[in-house]
């Protein structure tokens, strides 16, 4: 993975002059970047981080707007009706774009979205208040075993990354916990900080934002997050769990192959900017470099994974 991204970085540096020129030829004005949620969430923050880098590298403004509704469905259902000339892009989120269409007809299908880059993910993590009696994950598991159902965990939404993680972990650890859904990560964190729930199913970004006010018990990554060298992974603790909420960008499916390729290169170049990577990692995000070429394989794997999990959890039929 690391080697792979090093190669990419080198390639990107070589290509960057080329991409920049192609971009200035292709883009004739500001680009509208639609976030299908309200402001303040991880999707918004990471898009805001990209904004200045895009302007600096490609000379055009990236204008972020919000189109909330239906847990993102309103935006994604409208995406393919927008102009495919490369001046409109939209954020996409996993597992949302896989789970929602699998539940009911929400106006779009996963494979209809022209996702051209997945640029980061927020790894799942169990977060507790700094003064929580749970010092380690083992404490939480032991408490849940002693009092089935009485350990409450807040999280963002249902049939969401947090909810799927809770179901999966309960199964792996052989415990029963109670998941309390909130509207968005912010509200779930507020519930945790106010001791309304005993823990939170959140992301590494929560740990980055809240600092000393919270403690992460474990993160669902292959290796430890560079920002949190002391927080073990679930794998280290014997639970085979990696993943989180993945975020990427899509074009309307009317966009040409060249436009898609150009966008994939442009976002890839931002993603390989050391300064951008540092900003993202400091925010608790984990980088991901899946460009347009590898997207179909990546999506196929994720679809398989999420659909299996959601079916096992009874969230879809």
């Amino acid at each position: 993975m690391i080697k792979n991204s090093l190669v990419k970085t080198a390639a990107a540096i070589l290509l960057s002059a080329h991409v920049g020129m192609a971009a200035s030829a292709e883009l004739s004005g500001p680009v509208s970047y639609v976030i299908p949620f309200g402001p303040g969430g991880e999707s918004d923050i990471s898009a805001r981080f990209q904004q200045p880098f895009f302007k600096e590298k490609f000379g055009q403004d990236l204008v972020i707007s919000y189109q909330p509704g239906g847990g993102g469905a309103v935006g994604w259902a409208s995406l393919n009706g927008l102009s495919g000339d490369g001046h409109t892009i939209m954020g996409v989120n996993l597992p949302h774009i896989i789970i929602k269409p699998a539940q009911k007809d929400v106006g779009f299908k996963t494979e209809e979205l022209n996702t051209f880059y997945m640029f980061h993910y927020t790894p799942d993590a169990i977060v507790v208040n700094a003064d929580s009696p749970y010092q380690t994950l083992a404490d939480l598991v032991a408490d849940a075993k002693a009092k089935p159902g009485e350990v409450t965990l807040s999280g963002s939404g249902k049939a969401s990354a947090n909810h799927l993680a809770q179901i999966k972990f309960d199964k792996l650890a052989g415990i029963t916990t109670t998941y309390v859904p909130f509207k968005g990560t912010g509200a779930a964190v507020a519930a945790l900080l106010g001791n309304q729930t005993k823990a939170e199913w959140g992301y590494t970004s929560v740990g980055a934002k809240q600092g000393d006010a919270v403690r992460m018990l474990a993160v669902a990554m292959g290796e430890r997050h560079p920002l949190f060298p002391d927080v073990p992974t679930f794998k280290e603790l014997g639970y085979d769990m990696t993943g989180g909420a993945y975020r990427g960008i899509a074009l309307p499916n009317t966009a040409s192959a060249e436009t898609t390729k150009l966008w994939s290169d442009m976002i890839g170049e931002i993603n390989n900017d050391p300064e951008f990577r540092k900003t993202m990692l400091d925010g608790g995000f984990a980088m991901l470099d899946v460009g347009a070429d590898e997207m179909s394989d990546f999506m196929a794997e994720r679809i398989e994974e999420y659909i299996t999990d959601a079916r096992a959890a009874g969230l879809i039929e």
């Binding site: 509704g69 239906g70 847990g71 469905a73 929602k100 539940q103 009911k104 929400v106 939404g157 249902k158 049939a159 909810h163 859904p181 909130f182 509207k183 969230l315």
Partner: peptide, 8 residues
């Protein structure tokens, strides 16, 4: 789409 439950 419900905000905090899994139904439409």
């Amino acid at each position: 789409v419900a905000e905090i439950s899994a139904d439409i």
